[in-house]
Design a binder for these strands. Sequence first.
DNA 1: TTCTCTACTTGACACAGTGTCAACTTTAGG
DNA 2: CCTAAAGTTGACACTGTGTCAAGTAGAGAA
Lengths: 200, 200
Amino acid sequence: MSSENSETRFRILQAALDLLESGQGNGVRMTDIARQAGISRQAVYLHFNTRAELLVSATHYLDKLHNTDERLAASRSAPTGVKRLETYIDAWGKYIPEIHGIAKALLAMRDSDDAAAEAWDERMRAMREGCQAAIKALHHDGMLNPDYSQKTATDILWTMLSIRNWEQLTDQCGWTNKKYISEIKLLTRRIFVVNETEEA
Amino acid sequence: MSSENSETRFRILQAALDLLESGQGNGVRMTDIARQAGISRQAVYLHFNTRAELLVSATHYLDKLHNTDERLAASRSAPTGVKRLETYIDAWGKYIPEIHGIAKALLAMRDSDDAAAEAWDERMRAMREGCQAAIKALHHDGMLNPDYSQKTATDILWTMLSIRNWEQLTDQCGWTNKKYISEIKLLTRRIFVVNETEEA
DNA sequence: TTCTCTACTTGACACAGTGTCAACTTTAGG
DNA sequence: CCTAAAGTTGACACTGTGTCAAGTAGAGAA
């Protein structure tokens, strides 16, 4: 295993991302990545023990490139729960297309590879925390629909925001990402937020 | 290829279902199925050309065993749109656990195998028709939320009822199937059905 | 009985893709 | 000039799918 910051290492990661971006998902082989990076297949193994490890690293690398954490955390500064929910959906909705390629690959390996599964689950756990925080904020404002416990509301929001759903709505239903974002906002508002006008 | 109704053929299908039922999904190999059926691996190929073909056949076989079509079509006789929506969700919610094992296998092959993808998509198309019919019935009753076109409403309902979502809610969120069904009913009612009391 | 057809068995093999290993080359630094 | 690190080349093991060929067992017909 080489040093953590060698140039070749980044070339490999970049090559992987380039190929995954085109949406091949699991169809991207080690050979392809090596060729794209301009090195031999074996050299890839000098930097990453397994394909799963490479994919996981690529995910982290991509996150750094995109400032993922900060972008998703930005919703924290929203003044109200409703705003916070909206901001979070917005950030997430813009984030999905960027990670879609690699998400697909990771997802496809989930069943057969523990490392991939772990990487994916960790990611989803982080996303869930964002959902939970938004729901909590709503509840704190007294705006959370009393039909739902915070847990149940989080479960539902988390599921609605899943990448699979985004895939289905954009790929199969032909929604634009813009439509996706605005519809989900509407939907979650209708589901989770008590109607102010009704209250008054 | 042997006759379509040989006993061995059914033994193979049953063996496949038995193994898939335990939730291994894509982890079920031809060798495993053969052993479970008590025949040689090669004999399986005398009845099914490929693994995908076997899985597709197993799906059809399972449908026959369960009377799937009739059960899902039962919602058609519901008197109102709202009732129809509920009945459909009920039937679907009871259906999912039964097909979950094989669905998982088919889903995992979707990207790499055209036959599997086709089988899966056909299935989802059928499910979508049920969604569409329910939405149409709602609209006919004048109960469909005017925020939504029938297309958009169908897209959303179809996505919400996806097997992936069921998986996530039951597996990861720990919902019982009963909770799944009742929450989804509540959710869809809140989203799609105009509020009678508001109207009055 | 023998002949033949069919379903099945046994065992070998091609192919793809991952991961391993060993020996060789190139290049930069001391 | 020597060494060590990083990369190259080529071979190989392993898993799982799908193919092929030769052999066997049993049932029905001549």
